[in-house]
Design a protein around this nucleic acid. Structure first.
Length: 204
DNA sequence: TGAATGATTTACT
DNA sequence: GTAAATCATTCAA
């Protein structure tokens, strides 16, 4: 498998295009313990400042959101609920706080390491089928906030093209019905690792 | 300075 | 199905 990082040009595009195109791509993570690789099967677009569901809504520019205003191709990592991390791809261009949340991957390599970090057998779907879960399996935390995604230790690499389905985003009801209804979640309908297929046209 | 809350996960009834 | 865990960030005073 050829695991070269995608160029910055991949990220320097409209956020919805990046969110759709990263389905099927590989996420590669290197640490002292070794390398883990996953195939991205679910992602969501957040388009601040007009997107009420985005942290950068209203042009909010704080220590936390600062990374999203920087150049595309960097990681925006944040901490929620007192125990979980989420990782985003910063996209588009400088001063446009648009980002793609990675919600789920299919384990491809380094299964043992992921299982050890998650404290469960590598055969379980729960290994990486959620945004907080994949961060734990990939050992991503807020020390990775702002790192460059065009080189190790964290980057996206090419993958096979697959079908991509759309649905509404998850867990953003606080943004109101209008924004919650935007079909800005993209996923591979054939994957068993998608966190929630409900809300999509396909069932099960 | 202090209070409220969340791009969730997990365990328990 | 529901509820608890748990803390950085944000906003108000």
């Amino acid at each position: 498998m050829d695991l070269r990082p995608l160029p910055r040009a991949f990220y320097a595009r409209p956020v919805l295009s990046v969110a759709r195109d990263c389905i099927g791509k590989h996420l590669v993570r290197d640490t002292a313990d070794g390398r883990v690789v996953g195939r991205i099967v679910e992602a969501e677009a957040y388009r601040g400042p007009e997107d009420r569901a985005a942290h950068s809504f209203g042009g909010r520019r704080t220590a936390r959101t600062e990374v999203m205003y920087g150049p595309p191709g960097h990681a925006y990592v944040f901490f929620v609920y007192g125990l979980h991390h989420h990782v985003n791809l910063v996209t588009t261009e400088i001063d446009k706080p648009h980002a793609v949340l990675l919600r789920a991957v299919e384990p491809v390599a380094g299964l043992e390491l992921m299982a050890e970090r998650r404290g469960m057998p590598a055969t379980r779907r729960e290994l990486t089928n959620g945004p907080g879960k994949l961060c734990e399996a990939f050992a991503i935390d807020r020390r990775d906030n702002g790192i460059d995604l065009t080189s190790a230790p964290l980057f996206l690499s090419d993958g096979a093209v697959c079908k991509v389905a759309r649905a509404t985003r998850v867990g953003i009801d606080y943004a109101g019905a209008v924004w919650a209804a935007r079909p800005w979640r993209f996923f591979d309908p054939a994957s068993r690792y998608v966190s929630k297929s409900a809300g999509a046209r396909s069932r099960r």
